[in-house]
Nucleic acid binder design. Structure first.
Lengths: 119, 119
DNA sequence: CCGCTCGTTCACAGCCGTTTCACCGGACGG
DNA sequence: CCGTCCGGTGAAACGGCTGTGAACGAGCGG
């Protein structure tokens, strides 16, 4: 599995992640994540800058093999993105590489006001 | 065990805790707690900001291993919350992290009047 | 013996997390 | 233009976890 080391701390932009405590701080404030969300984030951050395949992510977090047709990863990436964006709107962390997987990397996002507000 | 040090004093928001004396002051007024409630509070405060698992809490306060199905912790967290909220309604101290445990951290609670107040 | 407090356990309700499904739109190749 | 593949997204279904009120019994002091 993954969550082994207890006292290391991961940093990524405004994020501080304590794998041992199951805790994530976004700009200093605790960001409540579910077990899956947390596992996914840790797996991605530990491989920051590299592309991680869905298959590998599933193995790392769910600890079993990804059956095809299973969209769990997509769903949880989405949930993570929403929470991260809510906490830190100015940053984009999880990037899709179509056909390959996801890559974690804190990058400035294009934030603009919503006067006309699409949707 | 835990209650060792006698002469330290813990502060957390409007709370002042004297582990050696078994005393808690909320905004200056003594807050009467039972032995379990007090132990639980001290254990949490000593780890403020971090998530503490039920299992760890039980070991720290009850000094034995948490059998599964045992809900004592939940019940005492509830009792503590009630007393703390009664004494200091404007603050939330004990936060649940589903699947992980509890985290102590004084945070302003969302207190609002309900005149119209839906949503 | 009585009444109280405390710790523990039980039962029920409600909320939250996980998984799955359905639909959508963009990208791509024929 | 059409069909297909792929990922984004909202929501339903289900189960497990947590909140909460109450009952029970032990211990203690009056």
């Amino acid at each position: 599995m993954e969550a082994a080391q207890t006292d290391d701390v991961l940093y990524a932009g405004e994020l501080e992640i304590r794998p041992g405590d199951g805790l994530v701080l976004a700009a200093g404030r605790a960001l409540p994540l579910s077990v899956r969300e947390f596992g996914l984030l840790v797996a991605l951050v530990r491989r920051a800058g590299r592309i991680v395949s869905r298959s590998d992510l599933y193995t790392l977090v769910w600890n079993s093999e990804l059956r095809d047709g299973d969209r769990s990863i997509d769903v949880y990436v989405h949930k993570l993105r929403v929470k991260l964006e809510t906490a830190l709107p100015a940053w984009a962390f999880i990037h899709t590489h179509v056909g390959f997987g996801y890559r974690f990397s804190p990058e400035a996002s294009h934030v603009f006001h919503n006067s006309t507000t699409p949707r």
